[in-house]
Amino acid sequence: MHSDRRQFLAAAAAFAALPPIAARAAVSPSDAEAFVAQLVDDLIDILSRATAQDTRVEEFLALFRRTTALAEIGRFTMGRNWREMTDAQREAFIEAFERYAARAYTNRLGDYNGQTVTITGSQDVGRRGVLVRSVLRSPGEQPFEVEWLVNEKDGQPILVDIVAEGVSLSITQREEFSGMVERRGGDIDRFIADLDTLG
């Protein structure tokens, strides 16, 4: 669609248009890209080993706890409901959310069968971090655009979101959770209990 030159000029123009006070991401684009490359390797490593479903859930959970801003993502996905939750509810939710996410990934990603992820570049998105772009290729299927939002926490790069073909997992999850709470008449405790059975 665009030549490299055009893309470069566009990026340069967009950069020049930024107000001087615009916050730069704390994490550098090259660190973010290296972080994503490592994360992809770790994911493929888990998916390539023939392990029992339960073991894989635990492996995903360990990987997420190490590399993802799980607590912050969890808080984000509760949207406005977060403000009304008690400390005990918040704690119970984050715990349920972590396991829910690990189960969901185990069930949906399936086994590794030859997919490759090629990192194609990144974009500084200010205080939200760096968006690393990649193309996911599966044998016999059309390539898929996947973007990884990376920020920094305690001096380390940390994964904040995955955007697949423009669809943010965190935002979609927030919409789903908001609907789920609403369907339960605003009963947060019931929602948290049900979350334990889903994914």
Binding site: M1, H2, R6, Q7, A10, A11, A13, A14, A69, E72, I73, R75, F76, Q123, V125, G126, R127, R128, L131, E147, L149, N151, K153, V160, D161, V163, E165, G166, V167, S168, S170, I171, T172, R174, E175, E176, S178, G179
Partner: peptide, 30 residues
């Protein structure tokens, strides 16, 4: 709800200016 969230985000993606993502469209979790 899932269809609504995915559709709206996917449609908005087409409007990206010169392939750049609007930071406002990304979650600001911190």
């Amino acid at each position: 709800v899932t269809v609504r969230a995915a559709t709206v985000q996917n449609l908005r993606r087409r409007l990206r200016d010169r392939d750049l993502v609007d930071p406002e469209s990304l979650p600001d979790i911190f």
